[in-house]
Design a binder for these strands. Structure first.
Length: 299
DNA sequence: AAACAAACCTGTGCGC
DNA sequence: TGCGCACAGGTTTGTT
């Protein structure tokens, strides 16, 4: 489900509510979501640690811990990260639960107000990892050994938001290979964070067809692609991401995004193009993914 | 090097 | 109402 804007929205929620908090008890339900290591490794790696930051690279959430290890969460297609007061009934498919000590108990590290009560005088919060399809995963890894423990991180392309992607950089990327633009945008080794929704929206904004070869762009077209990547991702983050009809994507607090209301092509196959108002949007396939584009606007 | 297919799972919506 | 099929935001792996 979630692409860069959705993961970024979750990251901001973690930054507000989870960073600076100490992890108490950890529960693991289905082992599949900790398949990279084991339930014991996750529980041992998290229990008693304090979360120092909430970072994101592409669709990966990376939370450094005061132990020196790092927590990685990937939502894949149907994963959600939600916070709730301890004791709140959990939804189906809740596979990992992290109990957070009450806020304000950590001297020195706390971000929120030090609310001066005794530890334990209020229920702590819980962070839930919920994932019906169990494609997502949760792992504690050693960042000093990332090439072995999370090799895909080391091989990932630049993240346009968290790391930046200059026009010169994008020119280097598109000219150094001859790839169809849609599969290229989806390839996390090339640029990190773009998925099926935003690839289509970016190409429509840039007025480029999904099948155009990356090394066939004019300098002006390269500029349009560069601008579109930043504009679309930026607007989507401002809107809190896209929540589709099935409401699978919700942020940390259970709220939906609103960028779905601004989609110009995704999910609109067969409709008239909103931009040119003359052509009908075509649905086709690239990289085994449904792709919608306007043959009039996009060349 | 790049394109393609299948695989990993569960839920939902649609046609019959 | 019930059943079967197609399809879904992602990524990896193995083949052409």
């Amino acid at each position: 489900m979630p692409e860069l804007p959705e993961v970024e929205t979750v990251r901001r929620g973690l930054d507000r509510l989870v960073v600076g908090r100490r992890v108490g008890r950890v529960e693991v339900g289905r082992e599949r979501v900790v398949r990279r290591t084991s339930p014991e490794a996750l529980i041992h790696g998290l229990t008693g640690t304090t979360i120092l930051a909430a970072n994101r690279r592409g669709k990966y959430l990376l939370l450094p811990l005061d132990s020196g290890d790092e927590l990685m969460v990937h939502l894949r297609m149907s994963g959600q990260l939600l916070v709730a007061r301890a004791g709140t009934p959990r939804p189906a498919h809740t596979h990992v639960v992290m109990h957070l000590d009450p806020a304000g108990e950590q001297p020195g590290v706390g971000r929120g107000k030090q609310r001066g009560g005794q530890p334990g005088d209020q229920p702590g919060d819980e962070v839930w990892f919920v994932d019906p399809r169990t494609f997502g995963e949760v792992v504690v890894f050693d960042p000093g050994n990332v090439a072995v423990e999370l090799p895909e991180l080391a091989a990932m392309g630049p993240d346009p938001i968290s790391e930046g992607l200059s026009l010169a950089q994008l020119r280097g990327i598109v000219r150094s290979r001859s790839r169809q633009l849609k599969p290229m945008l989806l390839d996390q080794h090339v640029i990190a964070g773009i998925g099926n929704i935003y690839a289509d929206e970016i190409l429509h904004r840039a007025r480029l067809r999904p099948g155009r070869l990356s090394d066939s762009l004019s300098p002006a077209a390269e500029r349009r692609l560069h601008s579109a990547i930043h504009e679309i991702l930026g607007e989507a983050i401002m809107a809190g991401g896209s929540t589709l009809g099935d409401a699978q994507y919700l942020d940390l607090f259970g709220d939906n995004g609103s960028y779905q209301d601004d989609h110009k092509v995704y999910g609109r196959g067969g409709e008239r193009c909103l931009t040119c108002a003359t052509s009908w949007l075509r649905t086709t396939q690239y990289a085994q993914r449904t792709t919608v584009y306007c043959a009039n606007c996009q060349r």
